[in-house]
Nucleic acid binder design. Structure first.
Lengths: 404, 404
DNA sequence: GCAGTTTGTTTAGTTGCGGCACAAACTCAG
DNA sequence: CTGAGTTTGTGCCGCAACTAAACAAACTGC
């Protein structure tokens, strides 16, 4: 009998229909009406109508055909599409140097509920993740909503396919912790349904900003961000996160941006990492750095409130120049059509946008690629929303299968 | 037995969707038999049979159901699939510092005919491209085969969507020449049918090696190569060339690999470009560089024949160390699962593979990503074959539409 | 109130492909 | 040589997803 031995992935591999793409369009806000959905999908009105009706029947979106809410343009007003407020949610969790936080996130990146951020971060990942998942489970019980998955953002590169955190330096976890499995175990133990995913926070920030924030519409989106210590990067290509063959792409912290700069633990000198993080800024500006978990806020405040102080301004300009050098190097390699900056890099951009753009343009090989727009991240809780995107992905890929 | 002449129902519109993927599998040699095609496509035997029959009817592949040619394994032997030798071809052209060359390339990267390489390269792109296309048209007339497109490889970044050559330094063309349009005009004027494409030679080398050479099966393939002067890079992601938002990605020549190195025209010091090309090797080895168009051969010969000379060996090791530094930087950013090297970089790899691998592993952030395999390019005329791939792409995407 | 425009809905095909049953071509054991 | 076992090719049926076309509905502007 040929029944069991057939190993072909016949059913799962086939995209079932336009359901997934349609949901993604509503999810990212690119299909506000059924007419737009029709043209974006490139199908007939009949098909788009059937697809929208099915997504509504699945309890994912709302199709609003009320009469008077109209448009102003000619012709019959199109039905409005929106995500359903009472639809399913995913559990999103974030661990960083400040502590951890859990949230429920609906389609469209809508944060339904968040736990208060907790400050204590312990050296045992299982304990931390157990607590944060429990906080999320509590939110879930209070809300009464259906949960279809869970996502976690950690401040470390996450190696695939093992799901281990390689450099969770800022949160005192042992390097190589199997965070994905630990998180998945916590999720199961808390009785939360659906698959569990784990990713690097900057990667997830980029994903969130691409779908709901400053990266919307970009085809080659580069995101660079500093937290309290260290620099992270991420690349979103054609709507998909590019994290390399083993999840370790865009580790941009060790680009050389200052050959005579300070030594770095990687063995080189003047790496982007040690030249453009909050600690570098504070020491360059001759300020006493505070406790590690508040370095980012301290540096940001200094930039915003004392930019007329020559020492602060000089330090900012030095960092901007080095950041620009690093970004130019990345532009030459990746040729993105948009760059977004987070953390202290975002503050540096806003302190003197022209200077940063000029440096990048000057050190890029050709004007065209160097004139790439550089924008600040706009989304609140962007890595939380990004963690949610990870959990939403199966639903976006195949709503029928994911909700079954 | 002989192939059955008539299918009962001639449904010429049969396969819209699986046709392209099926042709690509045969084209890249990943579907030697219909049984493999069935499992690779993830469809039923019936579907794969229909698809193969239609590709045969289109004159693209051959389905060999002869009896005795069988396999040795159990069960009924599967029909063999191969590209049809008398099927259509594309015109491939290449311009580089040595001169230019035209060829006819069939499916499977098979070079059907090549013109003798011509040495004279003139400063007027229209004249050069006119001559090379005419040489190709002559091959085509002599062969009597059908031509379905044309592709050109140039030693310069090609900006999209304009199709202009930004830095054709080695061939004395004016920067910004609209090479794509010039080439397309020459192709039309020569009476050659099908669309015409233009790309950077290293990009096309990577594409060719990915489909038919040392890059086969890699999901994230990085290719780095030096010609006579200057370094180029390319990235193939999931079988598709990644050339950035405007075709300028992987301009890796100006990564800093030697902070105290020689000055570069880009304004920096110690760029990969000026530290690892043939001229750098020859001067470091204290040899008199010959004429520019034979630098690559001179350096390669020196490496192979006088590696026991201490000056040569020292120079090679210095270049290997710097190349390794540059590759490690790229590994940290792109996290490829395979690296292939061309030109002088290939020769350096073969001179001391262990040294290069050790440097890359040492300067990569994590062992895992640093232990990426580094291989030499294997394909003869790889940028010619790559130019052909460009022209084949529409056929691979939708055979019915492209051959209509 | 009417023409013009745009969109939603219904109905009738069309098609790519899975599922199944069976035939064909091979290997191997005896 | 023969029959069992295995793997693959082929014909047929039907479904699910889509298109095409005709019609109905809801808006604007004159």
């Amino acid at each position: 009998m040929n029944g069991k031995a057939t190993t072909t992935r016949t059913k799962l591999e086939r995209g079932r229909s336009a359901l997934g793409p349609a949901l993604e369009l509503v999810h990212t806000g690119r299909a506000p009406t059924r007419a737009v959905l029709t043209s974006e999908l490139g199908v007939t009105r009949a098909t788009a109508g059937a697809v929208a009706a099915e997504l509504e029947a699945l309890g994912l979106i709302r199709v609003d055909s009320s009469p008077g809410s109209a448009a102003g343009s000619q012709g019959r007003p199109s039905h409005r599409l929106s995500v359903l407020e009472t639809g399913p949610v995913v559990l999103a969790a974030q661990v960083h140097a400040d502590g951890f936080r859990a949230a429920l996130v609906g389609l469209g990146g809508r944060i339904v509920a968040t736990s208060p951020g907790c400050v204590a971060v312990m050296a045992d990942p299982a304990q931390v993740l157990g607590e944060v998942v429990e906080a999320g489970a509590e939110l879930l019980r209070a809300s009464g909503l259906r949960c279809v998955g869970a996502g976690l953002a950690v401040p470390s590169a996450v190696a695939e396919p093992e799901g281990t955190a390689l450099n969770p330096l800022h949160i005192a976890w042992p390097a190589g912790s199997p965070v994905r499995d630990i998180f998945a175990a916590c999720v199961r133990r808390a009785g939360i349904t659906g698959p569990a995913f784990t990713g690097n926070d900057v990667n997830l920030t980029a994903l969130a900003e691409h779908r709901h924030g400053a990266g919307r519409g970009a085809q080659h989106l580069l995101c660079v961000a500093t937290g309290h210590r260290g620099v992270g990067g991420a690349l979103v290509l054609d709507g998909r996160l590019h994290s390399g063959s083993s999840g370790l792409a865009l580790e941009v912290g060790h680009l050389t941006v200052n050959p005579e700069g300070r030594p770095c633990h990687c063995g080189g000198r003047g790496c982007l990492d040690v030249e453009t993080d909050p600690l570098a800024f504070l020491t360059t500006a001759r300020r006493e750095p505070g406790p590690e978990e508040s370095l980012l806020k301290q540096a940001g405040n200094l930039l915003r409130t004392e930019y007329d102080d020559p020492a602060v301004r000089q330090a900012a300009e030095a960092l901007i120049d080095r950041l620009g050098l690093g970004l130019a190097g990345l532009v030459n390699i990746l040729n993105p059509d948009r760059i977004i900056l987070g953390g202290l890099h975002r503050d540096l951009l806003e302190a003197d946008p022209e200077r940063l753009r000029a440096v990048v343009a000057d050190r890029s090989l050709w004007g065209r690629s160097g004139s790439v727009p550089i924008l600040p991240c706009t989304l609140a809780h962007n890595s939380l929303v990004g963690a949610a995107e990870l959990a939403w992905q199966p639903v976006l890929d195949d709503p029928l299968a994911a909700l079954a």
